[in-house]
Design a protein around this nucleic acid. Sequence first.
DNA 1: TTCCATATATAGATTATCTACATATATATA
DNA 2: TATATATATGTAGATAATCTATATATGGAA
Lengths: 116, 116
Amino acid sequence: MAINKSLLSGSTTLLILKLLEDKDMYGYQMIEVLTNRSDNTFSLKAGTLYPLLHNLEHQGMINSYDENTDSARVRKYYSITKKGKGMLAEKQNEWKAYTSFVNRILHGGVNFAKVN
Amino acid sequence: MAINKSLLSGSTTLLILKLLEDKDMYGYQMIEVLTNRSDNTFSLKAGTLYPLLHNLEHQGMINSYDENTDSARVRKYYSITKKGKGMLAEKQNEWKAYTSFVNRILHGGVNFAKVN
DNA sequence: TTCCATATATAGATTATCTACATATATATA
DNA sequence: TATATATATGTAGATAATCTATATATGGAA
C-alpha cells in the first residue's frame, strides 16, 4: 500500500471522521473534545475546521442537519456517511502504515539491519 | 508541551535528522534508504529533499562537505550538528506526543471516558 | 451594559510538499 | 557505438493544509 501524501499533513480529517463514527457532533464541539483529549496541547482552529467540514460534506463523506434547541441558537450537526466510513478505514490504515514506518526509523528494530 | 503544528506535515525533517544521527549521508542516499525502509510505500521526492537540506544547513542544524571519489562525480555529504541534535530531540518528543494523542482518539483507552 | 464564551463562516497568508524541468556523470544494453 | 537508464544535485512554479485575522450573532456573567 502506497502511503497517501495527504496523510502527512491531513490527519485532521482522520480525527474528525473518527469522532463522527462515535456520534453526531457539531463543529465547535469537535474542537472542544480534541482540545480536552490532548490535555490542551493540540487545538484545531475554527478557521481550519469549518472549511474542512464543508469540503467533506461536498465530497459526500458527512451529512449535516440543523438542530434547533429551544433557544434561537442553531447548532449544525454532522453525521458520517457510509462513504465516509470507507474513507475513515482507509485513512486509519494509512496512519498505521506511516507511523509504523517513522517509528521503525526512530527506534530501529528488525528491519534496521537492512543493508544500505 | 504544546505540539508544534509544523510536525503535522514536517515529519520529513525528523526523518532526515534521525538518519544523520546514525551516520553522515548524501541526499540521494537518504532517498534510497527511506524508500527501502518503507518497503517502497514511502518515497521522498528530490524536489522536496534538496531545498530542505539547504534550509537545515542555513539554520545550522547540519553541515555539508564534498567527498571526491576517484571518479569525477562529487557527492555532497551532510552531518548533523549539536544544534541539529537538539532539534532532533525536540521533534522526537513532539512526534511521540502527537501520535499518542491521535492513537488515543483512534483506539480509546483510559482517557476516552472523559466527559464531553 | 459590557465583556467573555459559544457558534459558524470566509479571506488571505504561510508553509510543506509535489511535479516538472535542468544539468551532468556512470553504467547497461541494443 | 549509440542510446537509454541510474545516479546525483538543483531550481521554479503549483498545489494543498493549515494558520491568522476578521466578521457576525447569541447566551450568560460580571
